[in-house]
Every structure is written in structure tokens, then in C-alpha cells.
Nucleic acid binder design. Structure first.
Lengths: 222, 222
DNA sequence: CGTTAATTTGAGACCATTCAATTTCGGTGG
DNA sequence: CCACCGAAATTGAATGGTCTCAAATTAACG
């Protein structure tokens, strides 16, 4: 994007909104009126099934758009929640839409953003569909680490990790109990250390091996 | 889209290509040069994990674009295969790209198409992550039926169903053996009848109940 | 420092897998 | 038209990964 594009994007009218931990930002079935950019904190998407179980569909880090798709598709098809206390920028659908109409580079950037989103969903289908518990969790940890590094939010082997074990389980299709046992097994093997909301990856190569992690699907080069 | 838009789309230079059953259309890691529209037959996307297991990520029916995302993201992040013998129209990336630049309605239609795709991936994460075998398979059958009806390819309760049980299993994260037993259980309960590549849905309401199926995620109204 | 949330542990049950063998089906050639 | 073939579907039995339920321990927070 050119400087002019960036100025136009930053110049959009927006308002700031804060959410508490676990606060609902968008509910499934609601009409969408605004577009949300995450400024600080973490967020996640989820859907509930008929017996009340929850499946987390993605996690989001600062700098990501949370609901471009909702704003085009009129009605939200999933729930969007803050993971930690967080702050977002709200932009009106119409203002963003006008900007996309007049600025090809911005249009292209948002389009790519949503295509990468889509690629991540595909990898998650594979993760919950065809990997065992250890691999699922290892893969999730690798993905979060790779994305945080790529976004410049973290750079070493130590990360803020605000997920509860129940949330890790809901993202990987496991129960909280089995998630706990699996994390212990990863710790015992010296792959990670995890406590008090801090994750250290002690052996990146081994963790990617266990998690069958190949970051091509993140399309970091685009 | 206006008539003029439609004419412009149909007027794009394209070539026809045939694939045999299980033929590879795109391989993971390959650079993308063309954009593929499925004309006849069925196709599916899949990824392979390190132990050789396969996860099917989506099925596609005639009239759907198969790889808009690949053509924007440069390198394919998954494999694309024909399910049955099929015919596709190949359009050059650049020609389609030019058309999208000049025609907002076409751009919007393709954008919506890929957003619906994305919504379907999200639902599949939920399906394999948080539903048991009966619900997973019932849900898959409901989705295929709903999409075929919506596309006008089928209209009653009887459908061409060219999937093997192994493929149903690979789409739902189950083994072929357990898929077989689960299909028998759905038959025994009078929900479906399935043989020789023909699926009859005998009790739609009961099947949607078992599969926890709500078609909002298909966004058929857009 | 008290209270609630989150993590951890144990034991038993169950859903789905594995492995192997058998039967059925669709297609092909004699 | 029938015999044959490989692929797909089906069956059985044993194994195992994950779940369930419940209780205990530890950590987070006002």
C-alpha cells in the first residue's frame, strides 16, 4: 500500500471500544453494522453446538480485522468474543466499503487478509480432523507463536499466553481434562514450559515435528 | 450482476479441461497460474498429514469456482482433486484480475463467493471438532443436499452421491470402518437410504436434528 | 486473606480405531 | 450372457485414545 492509501485508511472515522475478558463483540445471527479492528488484547471466534459444547474457530491478535466477512455477509454466522480485556477500533461498514471502492490497494489488502483467514480455517479442519491430541495442541502452539512473531508482537521463544486450558481444548476439539494431560506430556518431553499465562517454547524443531507444523498455510510472504 | 457484467464474464477467454476420477487439479506448494470453474462433475479439496492420513476440507459442485484463493495467494496451500470425472473452465489469472478491477459487481460476487467458502470451513471445524460420528455424517449429508438444491442441481429428496465411504470418513475425520457402521445406524433409524451412488433423505427434519444442521452458515440469501 | 476460577489427579466407561477377513458390487472381456 | 476381477462395503473382535465424573490442589484476584 502507498503512503496515500495508508493515510486514507488511518483517516477513516472510527471510534474506540473496550471489552472485558470474555465479552461478546458479535453474536451469531445478528446483523452486522460495523467493522472491527483489534488494537490491544486478544479475541477469538466460536460457535456453539446443540448440546452446549463450544468450538473455538480462530484466535486473533492485535492488528487484525475481526469481521470483514460479517460486514459483507449481512448476518453473522459465528460468535466473536474477547479473550482478554481488549480495545478495538470500530469503522462503519459504509465508510470502509467506499474506501475499498476507490482504492484498489486497500481492497487488495483486505481481500488477501480474508484469504489468509480462510487458509487458517482449512488447516484447523485438518488439525481437529486428522491429528491426535498431542499433535493438535503442538500445532496450535506453533501457529500462535508463528503469528505473534510475524506480527512483531513477540520475537523470542517466550510468549504471553492468555488461554485457559479449557479454551485450548475448545480450539482443538478436546476436553479440558485431556488438554491438561497432553500439555503435561509436552512439558515432560521438554518441548514447552507453560505457567501463569506464559509459554516458552523450549524446542521449536521438536514441537513443529510433533505438531506436523508447516507454516506455508499462513502465507506470511504475501 | 447486470447483463453487461454477465456478458463480460462469459466473454473471458477460457479453455476446457477434463479430469479423470481422482485426478489432481492443483497440488499443494504449486504456484497458481489459472483460475478454475467447475462445469460438470464434482471436486474436493484435501490436505495430507505427516502420517499419510488425508483430511478432505470441502466438496464442490458444478458452477463453483475452485481456486480463487490460490490465484491471489500465489502458492497453493492445499490439494484440489476431482471426485468424479469432471470438466472445468480455465481462465487466466490476469484476465480475471483485470475484469475484477474494472467491474465492481463481478468483484463483489467473487468476494462473496469466497466469504461463503470461508463460512463453510468454519462450520467444518465445528463439525469435526465437537460432534460425534452420527452428527458429523448427518451434517455432511444435509450440507450437500442443501447446496445441491440451492444450486438447482437437485430438487427432491434423492441425490447423486458419488462419495465412497472412505471419502465420507476423510471429510468427517472418521475411519472408513466407523463411517460404514454409522451410515448403517442412520439407515436403520429410517433417516436415509444410500446405495449405488444414490442418496435418499427419508426424514429431512430428523436428519437435520441429528446433524445439528442450521443452514444459516451457507448464506443462501446473498 | 478469603473466594472463585483454573489446574491437576484418579478410575472407570465408551466411542472410535485397528487389523483382518468376508461379502457385495460395478465393470470388463471372453 | 456369464465368469472374472478389483474396488467398495461389510462384519467381527480386540485395542486404545479420549471422555466422564468427581475430588483435590493450586493459582488468581479483589
Amino acid at each position: 500500500m502507498s503512503d496515500e492509501d495508508k493515510r486514507a485508511l488511518i483517516g477513516l472515522p472510527w471510534s474506540r471500544k473496550n471489552y472485558p475478558r470474555d465479552g461478546y463483540m458479535v453474536r451469531e445471527g445478528e446483523p452486522a453494522t460495523v467493522c472491527t479492528l483489534l488494537i490491544t488484547g486478544f479475541a477469538f471466534r466460536q460457535k456453539l453446538v446443540s448440546d452446549g459444547a463450544r468450538q473455538i474457530i480462530s484466535f486473533h491478535i492485535p492488528g487484525e480485522f475481526l469481521d470483514i466477512q460479517n460486514s459483507m455477509l449481512e448476518v453473522a454466522d459465528h460468535n466473536l468474543q474477547s479473550l482478554t480485556r481488549s480495545t478495538v477500533a470500530l469503522v462503519s461498514r459504509n465508510a470502509l466499503s467506499d474506501l475499498m471502492a476507490s482504492r484498489p490497494a486497500i481492497r487488495r489488502a483486505l481481500w488477501l487478509d480474508s484469504l489468509v483467514d480462510s487458509s487458517i480455517f482449512r488447516e484447523w479442519v485438518v488439525n481437529v480432523g486428522r491429528r491426535d491430541a498431542r499433535a493438535r495442541i503442538a500445532h496450535l502452539l506453533c501457529e500462535l507463536a508463528a503469528r505473534l512473531r510475524s506480527a512483531g508482537i513477540a520475537d523470542g521463544e517466550i510468549f504471553d499466553f492468555p488461554l485457559t486450558q479449557e479454551q485450548v481444548g475448545d480450539a482443538t476439539g478436546l476436553t479440558a481434562v485431556h488438554t491438561n494431560r497432553t500439555l503435561q506430556s509436552l512439558r515432560k518431553d521438554g518441548l514447552i514450559s507453560l505457567s501463569s499465562n506464559r509459554l516458552s517454547i523450549l524446542d521449536w524443531d521438536a514441537l513443529t515435528e510433533v505438531g506436523d507444523f508447516n507454516e506455508r498455510y499462513l502465507h506470511h510472504s504475501v
